[in-house]
Amino acid sequence: MSDTVHNTAHNNDKEASRPEAVAPRRLPFTSGQVLLVLGLVMLALMAVVTIFAPLIAPYDPALTSASSLAAPSAEHLLGTDSIGRDVLSRLIVGGRTTLLITSVAVFLALAAGLVLGLLSGYVGGIVDDVIMRVLDVIFAFPVFLLAIAVVAGLGPSVPNLILTIAIVYTPAMARVVRGPVLSVKQWDHVEAARSIGMSELRIVLRHVLPMVVSPIVVATSLTLAQTIFTITALSFLGLGPPPPDPNWGGMLAEARQFMELAPLTVIAPAGAIVFATLTFIVLANGLREVLDVGSVR
């Protein structure tokens, strides 16, 4: 988000250390630290709710009742949907599917991107050419169209969704890894490690990987935000996890029919999607400043 904000904070530090400076206004924290803590708190909140979802949810999310489209009340804090299911419970449990798919898929994309990016960047030559050209073809597809094509091809189920998202985001991850590896492998400490006969694998793991962690962490956080979008959008189109399990995108799509009668049925999942996306964007911006990474893409 902010190089200038970062720089201003930095300048303040410098002026403060100069004795003749006239009492500069100085914040106790940099904006990056504030963002990072805020992001972590939001993430922790989401993690707790997700992990303990069945315990926290006041009702069974699939339980229908006679009071359909009810306004918020003491029994149903966010009201009920068109067939009388408790919106809050569905929201809490629905986050599980969405966040599970998101985190596993991004983890897979990260793992694949790391292996391919390290291989491509460190080994170079023909290996680099082949890997990057193949990834370029995937990269050339509009992400969302590719996701729709793959999910429609494989059929919408949780494992297929995970696989799809992982495939779609691997090229971007590999690029983020490859870039810094290209320069780091020419640094002196890598040369030194090689001259004392260290194995290539050990050099990569001990001396190259640690140097490129920062941009990868930031990129991962941004990819998580994009993945929330992709997964909820697919669910919104009916290509999400199959029906009995609630999920945010599906809830939003279902609620559209009656939304003027019960606006909360739409606003609640919309809010959840925005909150989850915002969490990872805030986190990414905080990490970028704290780890001092330039713009990743």
């Binding site: 979008f229 909820t232 959008a233 939003l252 939304m259 919309a270 999607i273 925005v274 996306t277 964007i281």
Partner: peptide, 12 residues
Amino acid sequence: ILAVPNFVVATL
């Protein structure tokens, strides 16, 4: 704004 997906904006 970056955190609000286009289909959420459209629905709202």
